[in-house]
Design a protein around this nucleic acid. Sequence first.
RNA 1: GUCCCCAUCGUCUAGCCUGGUCUAGGACACGAGCUUUUCAAGCUUGCGACACCGGUUCGAAUCCGGUUGGGGACGCCA
Length: 434
Amino acid sequence: MRVRFAPSPTGYLHIGGARTCLFNWLYARAQGGSFVLRIEDTDQARSKKEYLEEILFSLKWLGLDWDELHYQSQRFDIYRQVAQKLLDAGLAYKAEDGSGAVIFRMPQKTLEIDDMIHGKITFDTGLIKDQVLIKSDQSPTYNFACVVDDAAMQITHIIRGDDHISNTPKQVVLYEALGYPLPKFAHIPMILGAGGGRMSKRAGATAISEYRSMGFLSGALVNYLMLLGWSPGNNQEIIALKDAIAKFDIQDANKTAATFDMNKLLWLNSQYIKSCPIEELAELVKPFLKERNLISDNNFDGKYLEDVLQLFKERASTLAELSDAMAFFFVKDVAMDPAAAEKFFAQDLNAAFGALRSRFAQLSDFSPPRIEEDFRRTAAEMGLSTKQLIHPLRVALSGKTVGPGMFEMIATLGRDRTLERIERAIQLYKNKSR
RNA sequence: GUCCCCAUCGUCUAGCCUGGUCUAGGACACGAGCUUUUCAAGCUUGCGACACCGGUUCGAAUCCGGUUGGGGACGCCA
């Protein structure tokens, strides 16, 4: 069996296209067939190299590899030849306006299509007008090139969005006119935007590459896409692409349109971040840290990065969020956010900070348990509760009121940075209160 | 307007084909609690759906018809 995904490089690869591609890919891999990628670049004016590159890049990023790659722009001669055959057979005619367009004479009949997902669908072709096959600029129309290619490339199963259901009778009559064997059709439901209508920018129609730069892991996005219109069964939600192959069958796809839900995607992404091996996560997060000027190619400490990631990997839902949350580990002078400042300047803790600084300086084993021990002793000596000291200390070290566990954080930050930041906080308070 | 598709919690879905085991299961989100140095995470728990009407049947979420609602297509775009 052979399937195909046929994107048009007149726009970026979006959620709907990616899901269609995914189902085709999954079905091909499950059945041991071939997956053909066909670029439908017949509209010379609107097709852009930039879009083509984005589409190919995004498919690779998602892990959807193809067995063959074809470009319709290189096959114009074939379409014209086939059109000529229809002309010769009297099944098509030249436009009367002398424009050079070739038009197919629509037969009048009732067509019944047996869709793999919807079952029988009937159409009355008498309601469809004659279809242009070759435009006046001699380029083929979508429905024509599509049929010629699907037949030439021996596509056996056409899996596409159900917005194409109404194109199906127009294509089937062409198969019949040309004597091509009819493929099987499987029309999968569309993905709707949050409002219930077509996906808009707001609702998530953004390019797949956009999700990448927002910090989604490709595995999480692919996993989410699989769940839209299909279920692996057994109440399973998290499933890797390679494991889905064995369970996938296009006949199990839903008929009902699904609404895109960013919350669930975010949740899945957080699950993937959480379970991602730390070395891998480090590689994934590096570009985000570089983009924020937190590390550069020659200055970063791989071990330090991994240690910091351990602290944050369970508390972020995107790589972008992760990078922002851990930024203070990589800057010289931490910026204090307004809410944190309020907490920090609430009372004079310089005596306690001073005591902490000297204790930490002398600590032989700079580990979380020892740090905690010293911290609690200091708080007790100063007549402070843990809370009274821990929150301002967090602000002093991170500039924030929220973050990972204090003692692990200090240990990971390291003695030098910790002492430096405590000292800086002491000075900051002095200057402010003066 | 014409044609086509669809209809289970707010959202994604399981169940539907092969009616009874469904006082309809899971996940996200939301509420509460536990844990706790904060925020998360995690765990426990709560809220929450078979669109409506009719038919078939001893029995319908499941089968049939209609209504309503939603979506899509009607380009020399793809």
